[in-house]
Design a protein around this nucleic acid. Structure first.
Length: 694
DNA sequence: ATAGGGTTAG
């Protein structure tokens, strides 16, 4: 929205008229009663009503004009604000300041500058308003320049500059200013505490709070809200609880900001019951507090409750906003609930929020985490505004769903638009290459990353590269990379190498590698399972039984494989050889039928994978009755013919199941989406999206 | 109670 510059302003200097000429009848008493009536209406957002009253005032004072202007400005009726400003017989500095603020409110920075330059006399408030506005436009250097140039500074001006520094991440500069300012007040402290917290320095924020507390300065509700948030982020439940009882004694518990901070505090500290309690005792339930609760349920893995609460909020008549949607969609991911995610998508469209960049990003994540990468891409292509998160989200989504070349293509498009990648972008790309065993492209991306001065290399990048090298059989090079990297290796990177050893049956490297894991994490079952599988594949049964003995002695249990499918919001979970499901008879009958049909297609069980399970009793039946096969069979008999089946497995999909499900997809003419612990497999027409690089 | 500074969810 562009606002025309009003004629009086572009004319240059405004003329001040003596007030008495214009309101001869106004007495101070009369004016104060007009004022209180206007004030009440404006506070109540009844601006039209206020304007009718204003029109009846014989010669309104400058103050009354300015009140009306601010009333319009607050509800974004900017044209009317400017019209009144044009009409007023004289303007004081406050009126000009109101107009600067109005211009900034609609994003008209140029207009704000114009007003600031043309007003006859700026005061400290004019300067402070501009500093604040420049900060909102990320023009921190211009704000700093104004701050240094302003003729006099009061505490509010210092505070504005401290906040501006904090908002642009320049916490050190904020501290420097705070040290230098003559009279820091509780607002200065609150700004500095909040600034540290918001820039990831919650511990330092709490240390600052301790200083404030010792100074004996009286805390305001804002300070409590701010500090409670820092407690939440630093997981300082103890301090948070003390502050809670303290603020109750001060009578601050009904403050909306404070109570929302408490809802957040308890949710983040995994005290969801207390969080619910605070929320239920809260007088007004607004979007923010309700969103805090929805998010809180999500953080406590109570996604069903989260979505229930989201629905309650909508039914209560409170309109969700970007944040609410992003939390609700996140819970859809947690439940793999594509159907409910789609319903929420419809709601975002109704509210016109689906094109919002944050909501759009959440929708992309929801679709790709629920295995519907095609709808993710449709959404990505329809977004007219994108940020780095958008690009990262779609790249990671493609990587997890086997769309490797598309991920690389999107990266090229991103670079053509000069969007600077970050460490997540590179991780996504390397993951994509690893999933498709693209050694050359992987090396290329790794090279780009090493020479990208804007991105710091992280351990996870090396994990990805080791994974690529390992999968492509370059075990020695992978081992060398681990030994020469600039940070300490963790068990994850050794396990990546170990699993490559399994793929390429390399006992020598496996021995060295597993030794590292046993030293670092003797209780990690993955290394034992992998090593024993490597020995078993080589027929070295003595070594296998030795490892099993070791596991038994150390009391290490392997994580049992399980797969599940969600139908009509109910989760049906299966483990290998499971007969506990009410429809077990039908499921096994279907599996037998599939077995016959698959044999006709020339399928033979790949017995190498019978060794996948360490436990003896599961060995024989294992292959035919693996959990993922059970879940697929259940899906086939419980859903409409032709519809897509979506299965999730907690571990990696077994190789035999992978071949079998490919054929099943062709046999029954269905798309089957299987999400395992690392990625998605889209089976269709006898093929898998992973190109068998599982 | 004419204008500026701090506060809640993601």
């Amino acid at each position: 929205m562009r606002t025309r510059v009003p004629p009086l302003i572009s004319n240059g200097k405004a003329v001040m008229f003596p007030l008495k000429t214009f309101r001869p009848h106004a007495t101070s008493r009369g004016s104060s009663s007009w004022k209180s009536m206007l004030f009440r209406l404006i506070e109540d957002h009844q601006v039209d009503e206020a304007n009718r009253l204003f029109a009846r005032i014989p010669s309104p004072s400058i103050q009354l004009y300015t009140m009306m202007i601010n009333g319009y400005s607050r509800i974004n009726r900017v044209d009317q604000a400017f019209r009144l400003f044009d009409k007023m017989p004289a303007r004081d500095t406050a009126a000009w300041n109101s107009m600067i603020k109005t211009a900034l409110g609609i994003g008209e920075l140029d207009l704000a500058w114009k007003l600031f330059d043309e007003m006859p006399e700026q005061n400290v408030i004019s300067w402070t308003t501009m500093i604040n506005g420049l900060s909102q436009f990320d023009q921190i250097d211009a704000a700093e320049d104004l701050f240094l140039r302003m003729p006099e500074r009061d505490t509010a001006a210092w505070n504005a500059m401290i906040s501006a520094y904090c908002d642009s991440g320049r916490v050190k500069d904020a501290c420097r200013l705070f040290e230098k300012m003559p009279q820091p007040n509780v607002i200065s402290w609150t700004a500095l505490i909040g600034g540290h917290d918001q820039n990831g320095q919650s511990d330092r924020a709490l240390w600052l709070f301790y200083q404030l507390w010792m100074s004996g300065m009286k805390l305001t509700p804002s300070t409590y809200a701010c500090v409670l948030t820092a407690c939440a982020n630093a997981s300082e439940l103890g301090l948070g609880t003390q502050l809670h009882s303290n603020l109750v004694r001060r009578g601050y518990s009904s403050d909306s900001f404070v109570s929302t901070s408490l809802v957040n505090l308890y949710a983040k500290c995994k005290q969801i019951e207390d969080s619910i309690k605070v929320f239920n005792e809260k007088q007004e339930r607004d979007v923010v507090s309700w969103t805090a609760l929805v998010t809180g349920y999500g953080m406590n893995d109570m996604h069903d409750n989260a979505l229930e609460e989201f629905n309650k909020m909508v039914a209560f008549g409170i309109q969700p906003n970007q944040s609410t949607f992003s939390s609700a969609l996140n819970s859809c991911c947690g439940l793999e609930a594509l159907d409910r995610g789609k319903k929420i998508h419809v709601t975002t469209v109704k509210l016109g929020l689906d094109l919002d960049v944050f909501v759009g990003n959440s929708l992309i994540v929801m679709y790709s985490k629920c295995g519907d990468i095609d709808d993710s891409l449709v959404l990505f292509n329809s977004m007219d505004r994108r940020n780095l998160v958008t690009w990262n989200t779609i790249i990671v989504g493609c990587a997890q769903n086997g769309y490797t070349s598309l991920a690389l293509k999107i990266f090229d498009a991103m670079r053509e638009l000069n969007v600077q990648p970050d460490s997540i972008t590179y991780t996504g790309l390397l993951t994509a290459c690893s999933h498709s065993k693209m050694l050359g492209r992987g090396r290329h991306i790794f090279h780009l990353l090493q020479h990208d001065s804007e991105v710091a290399m992280k351990l996870e990048h090396f994990v990805c590269m080791v994974d690529i090298l390992g999968r492509c059989g370059q075990l020695e090079e992978a081992e060398e990379l681990i030994q020469n990297m600039p940070m300490e290796p963790n068990t994850i990177i050794w396990l990546a190498l170990l699993s490559a050893c399994r793929m390429h049956a390399n006992i020598e490297v496996a021995r060295r590698t597993s030794k590292k894991v046993f030293e670092m994490e003797p209780d990690n079952s993955a290394a034992y399972v992998l090593l024993s599988n490597i020995y078993a594949s080589a027929g070295r049964w003595n070594d296998v039984s030795q490892i099993r003995l070791m596991m038994r002695c150390r009391g290490i249990m392997k994580v049992p494989g399980s797969s599940w499918i969600t139908l009509k919001e109910t989760r049906h979970e299966f483990v290998c050889g499971d007969r506990s499901h009410p429809m077990a008879m039908e499921i096994y009958a279907k599996l037998d039928w599939l077995g016959v049909k698959l044999k006709e297609l020339g399928y033979v069980y790949d017995t190498r994978f019978a060794l996948h399970d360490v436990d003896d009793e599961q060995k024989e039946v294992a292959l035919a009755h693996h959990s993922e096969k059970l879940a697929v069979a259940f899906g086939l008999i419980s859903t409409v013919e032709g519809s897509t089946i979506r299965v999730i497995k907690n571990l990696r999909v077994c190789g035999d199941c992978h071949s079998a499900i490919k054929l099943i997809s062709k046999l029954v003419g269905r798309r089957i989406v299987l999400r395992d612990s690392t990625r998605f497999h889209h089976f269709r027409d006898g093929l898998c999206s992973c190109g068998d690089c599982w």
